[in-house]
Every structure is written in C-alpha cells, then in structure tokens.
Design a protein around this nucleic acid. Structure first.
Lengths: 209, 209
DNA sequence: TAGATTGTTAATCGATTAACAATC
DNA sequence: TAGATTGTTAATCGATTAACAATC
C-alpha cells in the first residue's frame, strides 16, 4: 500500500463513516450521495468527498456511493480484514467490560485470552475466554500470534506491564490508564483518556452556566 | 465569564495540561517554563503559550509558570470547582468500572447514585454507592441536584434512557454506546466511542504492515 | 542591570469549504 | 440526451509555529 500520507484528522473520521454506513446497510440502503450522508452526519458533503478520495474513487458521478461497497472499502482501509487478534491484560471491571463488548468482535477483532495476576481468577472464563496468569504472557505471545494488547491494569502497574508486553513483541497497545504511554520499541500505542473526555464535558457545562 | 470563544482544539488539550501539571506538582516542582513543559509533552512551547493565553496571562516573563497556580487555574477553567454531581445509569461492567474509577473523584466529580433495571441489584452498593431502580430516576433527579448522567446501558436502550434523563432536566450526558446521541433538549452531550479508537489503532497497524 | 521567558503579533501551514468540469 | 453527482482544483478559513518586543 503506497498511498500518500493521510492526515490524522481524516483517519479519525473513518470509524464514524464506517458506523454510519453500517447503519445504512441495516436499513437496506443501496446507494447514498455525499450530500445525503453529509446531512445525516452533520458535516459537509465536500469533506466527505475529500476524505474518501484520499483512498480512491469509490463513487460514481450522477449516482453517488454504493453503500455496501463503500462500507467494505473503509473496512479494508481500517485494516479490519486483518482479523486482528487481541488480549486483555487486567480482568478488573474495565477488562471485563471490554471482554463483553460485542462491538469489537463485530468489527473483526478477536479476543484470544485475558491475563491477570489474581490467582483466584486463573482458569475462569469471561465471555467464554480463559483467564491466564500474567506471568505466562511472554510464553503465550511466543506461541500465539497476537496483534493488540488492551491494558486495563491499575495505573501504577501500567508502565511495567506495557514494557513487558512490548518486549514480547506485540504490535499494538491500547492503554486505558490516564497517562501518555511511550515506549522505546516499535509499537503502535493508542491512549484512551476517559477522564479527559469527562473534563471536556465539564468545561462545556461550565461555559453555558 | 465573558471570554472570547475558545476553539475545541484548545479545550481538548486542557485536560492533558492538567494531567502534566498534576504530575509536576507531585514531583514538588514549583515553576516551569513553556519550553520545559513543551519538551515533556511533545508539543511546541508556542502552542502552550497560545493556549494558555486564551484564558489569561498565568505566567511571568523571565520566570515561567507557577505550577500550582496554573494547575488550579486550569482546574477552574475546566469547571472542576463546580463539584459536579454525577449518576451512572447501567450497572453492568462498564458502569461498575466507572463507579470504581478513582480519577473522577480526584478531579472533583462526585458519584451520587447508580441506576439499573435489574431488581436483584437494587439496594446493593458499588464502591459504597447505592444502586437504585431506573424507574425512580425522575423522582431522584427532582430531589437531588445532579449535573451529569453517565449512560452505560445496552445500545438499544440508550436513546430512550437518554431521552428520559434529559427530559428530567439533567445538564450533561456522557454516552458510552457506539452511536452519536442527539437530543432536542438543551443538554450537553459527550459521546465516547471506544471502538472508534480501537479502529484508529487498527489503521495505524495496517499502515506499518 | 542582564538574562530569561512571557504575551502577542505576524507568517506559515494545513484542513475545510466552495466551485465546477468531468462523467456516469 | 439531460440531470445528478462525483473527483478535483482553487479559495477560504482556522490552527500552529515563528519571531520579537515587553517585562519580570
């Protein structure tokens, strides 16, 4: 894939397009114009056409976009056909929430195992996925091809856990601790900062006060 | 507060500043220059000065910024001194995760109650907060001043639940379902799209493949 | 005072929107 | 063919960075 560099602003909008197209598919919509989609999504038709054309000409003049085709193409762009395999590290409430979150599986992300240090949990299952001891993570990653680790361990443990998993050769980390995880390895990191979002809500409430 | 309109780009960076300042405070750092902070955060010093000057001149020439003062000022800007009161709706894994998330409380958000429809849960407590039946939500909101409802109910239930809570006069909604919640009331909504973040991670992994 | 660093203006860069020729 | 709508270029807008005078 040697397409020109696409800006993060565009990339961050792709999952949203994907979601709206998925909804349209469910409504058995065959085709949609950029104008129609723009009205649903509350953005400009121009932006939609610009965004999509970063990746190719998926539409047809005079017709618009075929919903199913566009949906599949965006799925490919997002790498969903790689069928990423994931593990969750930390079987606390957040880990359990993620393990039960149907949306990931629907998008092609497959959860392979859950890890924790609590010996009482080892061997039990969450959503039919076995909980293993974190001490066996290196061995597990050696034997199984895993793409992404979702890290939902307590704040203080996060750097060490991330380091061990990255060393063991994982390619992507999804970090749920309120810190900007940075590692000296060639690993893609996405940080989820839940409280940051809450504070933006707080800011907006404060504004209209 | 009649300051000029501040762009969302700036607002979204505020919680991050707040977090870094909190870390500096813990390290007993008294003062910091925009250059020093910029190196820690991986952004330009110019941007930091621009951002902060949307809200006032918190620094001092030749000195930099007093960490504690700046921390408190950003806290005020984010509305944290309003001591927002929150409720969680949906006592599933995500609801429980949020109820146990210490970071919110530390930021001044106080959880007042949890609501669910599962009668087996009613009266029990999570993190010492009582679970109440969702049917009593209107009554509860009438008797208690609540600012924000965190909605962690199943996808299909989300629009109805949001509607009821908004009608009952809540001011802010924090939505965890993978949909863009929109309501015809004067209510501030922040949507958390966890899977969107995961898909951006997937995109980035796919890029370096 | 001299050095440091802000606050702020101006320059640059990038992202969004508008416009329209190409084409289905 | 006529109408619709894309793909794409050009114009605009906004956000980031650079520069420097003000000032502690």
């Amino acid at each position: 894939m040697d397409r020109k560099k696409v800006s993060m602003a565009v990339v961050k909008r792709l999952p949203r397009y994907y979601r709206y197209l998925s909804d349209l598919l469910k409504l058995d919509t065959i085709r949609i114009s950029s104008r129609e989609l723009s009205e649903r999504m509350g953005i400009t038709a121009s932006q939609i056409r610009q965004d999509l054309n970063c990746f190719g000409g998926f539409g047809q003049q005079g017709y618009g976009y075929n919903v199913e085709l566009l949906y599949k193409e965006i799925g490919k762009i997002l790498g969903l056909e790689n069928n990423y395999k994931t593990v969750i590290i930390g079987a606390g409430n957040m880990g359990r929430a993620l393990a039960n979150y149907e949306n990931f599986e629907r998008r092609g992300y497959r959860l392979a195992a859950i890890f924790d240090v609590n010996t009482e949990l080892i061997g039990k299952k969450i959503n039919n996925i076995e909980i293993r001891h974190f001490d066996t993570i290196e061995e597990y990653l050696k034997l199984n091809h895993i793409d992404i680790a979702m890290i939902t361990v307590p704040f203080e443990k996060t750097p060490e856990v991330a380091d061990r998993v990255a060393r063991a050769g994982i390619k992507g980390l999804w970090n749920f601790s309120p810190m900007d995880l940075k590692l000296p390895y060639n690993v893609v990191i996405e940080n989820v900062h839940l409280s940051d979002g809450l504070m933006v809500l707080g800011y907006r409430l404060n504004e209209i006060l």
